[in-house]
C-alpha cells in the first residue's frame, strides 16, 4: 500500500513538497514507514535520525500500527522559540 506523509520546515524544503508518498507493506508500522522514507527519498535522510512520526497528531512508537486513513506527519528536531 501507499501512504502519504506530511512534511514541514527543512524537510519540506528538501522534498520541495508539503507531503511525500511511500510504498509500505500491508499492515505497516511506524518503523516500516520510516524505512520506506529513507529508501525512497534519499533527500530526506539528513533529517530522519532526529525525526519522529506522528499518527493523527500524536507521536507514535516505532512499533505502532499505521492504518488506512491515518494522517501521518514527519516531525523533525527543528523547533521554534
Amino acid at each position: 500500500m501507499t501512504v502519504q506523509v506530511l512534511v514541514f520546515g527543512a524537510i519540506a524544503a528538501a522534498a520541495n513538497a508539503h507531503s511525500v508518498s511511500v510504498a509500505v507493506p500491508s499492515s505497516p508500522t511506524v518503523a516500516d514507514v520510516l524505512a520506506a522514507l529513507a529508501a525512497e527519498h534519499p533527500a530526506l535522510r539528513f533529517a530522519l535520525p532526529s525525526a519522529r512520526l506522528a499518527i493523527n497528531s500524536a507521536f507514535a512508537a516505532s512499533t505502532a500500527a499505521v492504518g488506512p486513513g491515518d494522517e501521518l506527519a514527519l516531525i523533525a528536531l527543528v523547533g521554534g522559540g
Binding site: 506522528a54 507521536f59 528536531l77 527543528v78 523547533g79 521554534g80 522559540g81
Partner: peptide, 14 residues
C-alpha cells in the same frame, strides 16, 4: 521547557 519545546513542539521557523 525551552529545551523540550525545540524537540516536542511541531513548530518550524522559515
Amino acid at each position: 521547557f525551552i529545551d523540550a519545546l525545540k524537540v516536542d513542539a511541531p513548530i518550524w521557523k522559515r
